[in-house]
Each structure stands twice: as structure tokens, then as C-alpha cells.
Computed example of a mutant assay.
Amino acid sequence: MRKLGLALAAAVFAAPAFAADVTVGVTAIVEHPALDAARDGVKDSLAAEGFIDGDTIDFVYQSAQGAPATAAQIARQFVGDGVNIIVPISTPSAQAALAATRDIPIVFTAVTDPLAAELVPSLEAPGGNVTGLSDMSPMAEHVALIKEITPDVETIGVLFNPGEANSVSLVNRLKEVAGPAGLTVVEAAATKSADVQAAARGLVGKVDAMYVPTDNTVVSALEAAISVAEENDIPFYAGDTDSVKRGAIASIGFNYYDVGVQTGKVVARVLNGENPGDIDVTFASGSDLFVNPGAAEKMGVTIPAGVIERANTVVE
């Protein structure tokens, strides 16, 4: 890896293009299928744009293993190493990157609410050294799906880490759309992955269904929560489609590999000389319905045939 000084790293804004030996620092708050898929999508997208790992770029990836303090250390390390661009995956990693540098370009991805997370002051031409891609969940569609599959549900327990700004935004949005749909929301906090199972157990007897948004802490320990749902015949829904493969009943969401591909195209624009502050923050496109009839059966639920018929993916 070539080590660049901060002054040279900052010069990326003015450079027309990088010829070779460019370092792309990629970091995620934790490793789980959705974030891993986003990382792979970024890497493949960059290769398609001519930025090939081991040839024209060094693609360096580090996971914070769920620890915000480690995310901050990784960001500072990237700055010290003089990477040309930082690609943080998830809100905590993006916040850590911005705290570490106002000079090196940052292109975030899998960030739910960039404004609430104070990453950018505006979605349009945000200015500074930051832009990226939001994965705000289609929460109203999630609630409608829950009501369609399990119409008797009146109370839903949401598992989330209140320390993740993205999750707080999603829970607030869930409350906004749940009320008109006749649902009451019960919160269950888990500040670290080891707390997830206990948080799920705390919902037993209080809720008719469980839901986890795109919360990195809970998703990293998803099976622990799903086991509680299965033991107690409580329908379990998720905010991302990868979690359906792991045992949730259903979700409407993004293909996170495609989210990574979309992000990689923005990264390439910056590597080719555009100022990230001049690039609008965009929202991930595409929406797939995933269902898991086997998981539903374990929770005492039968998914309606009409839902299965229109699903993009039926997990066997």
C-alpha cells in the first residue's frame, strides 16, 4: 500500500484522475450478510469502472466487530495511512470516518438517515468531503406486509440498539406508520450483540410479533432473537432480506450487493476527480419481497399463497 500524506490525499478533489496505486479504505461496523454484500458490491463495481484491486487500486477492508471505539480507531488508521478515499458501511462507521477527517473524501453506504446522523447538512450537493447512499427502509410496506401475513397482530416488539442513530430513525418511522395501521410498538433495547437474546425474551408475553430493522447490533446476533421467537410461536419479521434467509418470516428490502454496486459507481466518480461535496446523496433503488415459509411454520404461521406468489425469492 502506498502511504500518502494528508495534503496529497486532500488533492483528490482537484486531480482529474488517479493513474494507479490508489488506496480505497473500506470499513464496516460489523460483519453480517447485508453489510458484507454491500462491501462486495462496491469492490466489483469499482473493478467494472477500471479500479481493480491489486492492479490500479489497493482495496483495504477492516471490520470494527461491533465496537464504535474500534470504528474510530480504524478511521484514524486510514487517515494516518493516507488512503485516497474512505468508504464506510453503516452509520457508526460513517460517523467515525467524518470525525477522523474533513479532508479525505468519504463515500458512505448503508446509512439510513444521513441528516439525522449529522453526516451531511443537505442531501443535495452536501458540501465538504462527504456524500453517499442511504438505505432508508420502506417502513410502511413492512407494516403492510406484517398485517397481510399475520392480520391478528396488534402489538409488535422492535429490537434495536438505541446507540445507533440509524436505528433510532427507523424506530421513529415505524411508530409513525404503525399507529394508523392499528399496531402498537413496544421497544426492546440491545446495546450489544450479547444482549439480543435477553431483549427478545423480554418481549415474550407482551407482543404478538417481533421486528428488527436494519440494526447492525441486532442483525449480527439475529439467530439468538429468532430462537426466542420460534420457542414461543411469535412471528418474526426483518427490515432486510438477508435476514429472511437466516430465519425471519419475510421482508421487503434491498439487495445489498446492488446497494454496494450503486455506491461503487459514486466512489469511481470521486476517484475520477469529482468533489464528493458536489454529488447529491442518493437513495438505494430496487425493492424485493423475500419470504421463508419454513421459518413461518416454526413460528406457527402460514404465509398466504398470494404473498408467496408475488415474492421475488422464496427461501426453501
Rank of each mutant, 00 (worst) to 15 (best):
P180Q: 11
E297Y: 07
K192N: 13
L46T: 06
V79K: 04
T70V: 13
L6M: 12
A311K: 06
S243W: 01
D152G: 04
I89M: 14
Q77E: 09
V26T: 08
L123I: 10
D40P: 07
G247L: 08
V270A: 13
E231A: 15
F51Y: 15
A67H: 06
A71M: 09
D233C: 10
K175Q: 15
I234R: 15
R76V: 06
T155I: 11
I249R: 01
R246H: 10
F18P: 05
A67K: 12
A178R: 04
V218A: 08
Y257M: 06
A144G: 08
A268F: 15
V259S: 03
T101W: 04
A238L: 02
L174S: 09
I226L: 14
V87Y: 02
V218K: 05
T214D: 00
Q73W: 03
E223R: 14
G260W: 01
D242T: 13
G247Y: 06
E124T: 13
V301M: 13
V314M: 05
P162H: 02
V314G: 00
G300V: 09
G157A: 02
A144T: 08
A165R: 07
A190F: 13
I249E: 09
I234V: 10
R2N: 12
I106C: 00
T150S: 13
A296H: 09
K3V: 15
G25W: 06
G260M: 06
T217L: 00
A144F: 09
A11P: 01
K298W: 07
G264I: 07
I89S: 10
P88A: 02
G66F: 06
A140Q: 15
T101R: 04
A144H: 08
N292E: 05
T131K: 06
V158E: 02
V212E: 05
